[in-house]
Each structure stands twice: as C-alpha cells, then as structure tokens.
C-alpha cells in the first residue's frame, strides 16, 4: 500500500465531528478515539494518518505540504488566507462572523472613527474596507465582549453561534459578515500527485454529508 495520506484536524469539536464522519464512512477510528497524548495517529483501513493541531497550524501544515489535507473552520481560513485548495464544505461547525455592539446604540451614527475589538483583525479590516470605512482595530485575545462593556471599543467582530453570550452581556448583532463552517482543504501539489486517492475520499465524504 502507498504512503498514507496525512490529514490535519483542528483539535476539539471539528476533530470529533470529522472522526464521526469518517466512522460513518465505515473506517475504524479506534486509534484516534483512544489517542492519549499522541498527536499523529493512524486510520489504517482508510490509509490515512491523522495529525491533531491547532486551527492556524492546520493551514500552515497543509500550505507547506507536510500534511496533504486538513479540516479547518472557514473563520481561520478567512483570517489566515493562504495557498491551498478548498474542496468541500463539510457542513458541521456552523456559525457566523458578525459585527456586534451594545444593545440600543446606533453603531453607524456620527462622523468619528469607530474602534473595533476582535480576535480576527484581518476579517474585521476587510469587512470595513468593503464598506469604505476607516476603523481602529484592537486585537483582543480573550473574551471580546468585554471591550465594548469597558468602553474600549464601539463594537466587536466575532464568531456568533447562538447569540447567548452577546445577549447576556447586553450586546446585539448589528450585521452578519459571513457564514462559517468546517472546510476540507488540500495542498495544491498533493491534489495533483495523489489525485485518485483524494478524489475517492472526497467523493465518499460528499455522499455522506
């Protein structure tokens, strides 16, 4: 059998959903289920090798071709960008990017330059660029919702799933920016050099979504 295809999975929920999907396809994922602390795990009957990584690293590994494929959220792809093929929308991990501000305020009011707090500065910048708006962007690492409450910023750009966190903190969505879900990405050279194997796998996945 040829060298296994290496697939990088974003640790956590996307990893679990992907493994669920692979099991639905009939592959034996026991090694990944009982991984312990290992980071590279085989799925022998699919001739796959699973690599567990943080979202940003999934893109880096795929771009450099050390992993042939990866499963990563559209949020990370939009923030990081890069050179790879984005072959399938896996449908799980659904949420959206949205602009939110304190409930009851008119975000677009006035001439002053707005300040935006976010974990996703590139997404925020390109969103406001498309509106022709100059904004100050402040990168926040933890709970972004704090920034408007502490009056550091006028609004936030963040991932919104149900909106509960926003509501509990007196914030509301002003505008949706983009829908998000898990994507299957493939290294540009791997797709060409191992076309059959990758296409077969994607075919199987698409049938079972």
């Amino acid at each position: 059998m040829s060298k296994p295809l290496r697939i990088a999975l974003t640790k956590g929920r996307l990893e679990k959903d992907t493994i669920g999907l692979l099991e639905k396809l009939g592959f034996d994922c026991t090694a990944v289920r009982e991984k312990g602390r290992k980071l590279i795990l085989p799925i022998a009957d699919a001739n796959l090798e699973v690599v567990l990584a943080k979202a940003n690293d999934v893109i880096t590994y795929v771009e450099h071709g050390v992993c042939d494929m990866g499963v990563v959220g559209k949020d990370t792809i939009m923030e990081m960008s890069g050179k790879f093929f984005e072959l399938a929308d896996l449908g799980f991990g659904r949420c959206r990017f949205a602009l939110a501000a304190k409930k009851g305020t008119d975000f677009y009011e006035g001439y002053g330059v707005k300040t935006i707090a976010t974990k996703y500065p590139n997404v925020a910048r390109s969103f406001f660029e498309s509106k022709g708006m100059d904004v100050d962007i402040v990168k926040i690492e933890g709970s972004v919702e704090l920034a408007p409450l502490l009056e550091l910023s006028n609004g936030i750009v963040d991932i919104v799933e149900t909106g509960t966190t926003l509501k509990e903190n007196g914030l509301e969505v002003i505008e949706d920016i983009a829908p998000i879900s898990a994507r299957l990405i493939v290294n540009t050279v791997s797709l060409k050099l191992r076309q059959k194997e990758i296409e077969n796998l994607i075919g199987l996945i698409e049938e079972n979504l």
């Binding site: 790879f84 093929f85 984005e86 072959l87 399938a88 929308d89 994507r183 493939v186």
Partner: peptide, 13 residues
C-alpha cells in the same frame, strides 16, 4: 472573483 474561486478550487463558494 470567479477566477479566484476556480484557482483555489473552492467548489462550495
């Protein structure tokens, strides 16, 4: 936009 999406083989988008 179409060219970019084809180049990235971004089927869904």
């Amino acid at each position: 936009t179409i060219r970019k999406l084809i180049e990235a083989k971004n089927y869904p988008a």
